[in-house]
Amino acid sequence: METSINKSISHEAVIFIPGLSPQEKGVCLELISNGLSNLEDFSFEDKGEAQIQGYTGKRFCFYDKDNNISREIDIYEAYWQDLVAENKLSNKELKIKIFQGFGLFIDWIFSRVWKVVFEVSYSSVCFLISSLLMVFWYYGIVAIAMTTIGENHNFFGQSIPDDLAKAISLIANSMVNWQIWIIVSLILTFLPVEGIVDQFYFVTQYLRNDEEGISLRTKTRNRVIPLLNNLLSNYEKVTVVAYSFGVMISTDVLADYNPSTTQLIPLRYITLGGTLKFLSYKSVNLQKEIQKCLDNKVISNWIDYYSNQDWFGSKTPVPQKKTSIEIEFHKTPIDSSLWEKITGKTHFYYLFNPIWIKMLLKE
Rank of each mutant, 00 (worst) to 15 (best):
N6I: 04
N6P: 10
K7G: 00
S8H: 05
S8C: 03
I9P: 08
I9W: 01
I9Q: 09
S10D: 08
S10W: 03
H11C: 09
H11V: 06
E12K: 10
A13E: 06
A13I: 08
V14Q: 00
I15W: 01
I15Y: 03
F16D: 01
F16A: 03
F16M: 01
F16K: 01
F16Q: 00
F16E: 00
I17V: 15
P18L: 04
P18S: 12
P18F: 08
P18I: 06
L20N: 08
L20Y: 09
P22F: 06
P22M: 08
Q23A: 15
Q23C: 13
E24D: 14
E24I: 10
E24H: 07
E24L: 14
E24A: 12
K25T: 09
K25I: 08
K25R: 12
G26V: 08
G26L: 10
G26Q: 09
V27H: 02
L29C: 04
E30Q: 13
L31H: 08
L31Y: 09
L31M: 14
L31W: 12
I32Q: 01
I32E: 02
I32F: 03
I32P: 00
S33L: 07
S33D: 03
S33A: 13
S33N: 09
S33T: 12
N34H: 07
G35V: 13
G35F: 15
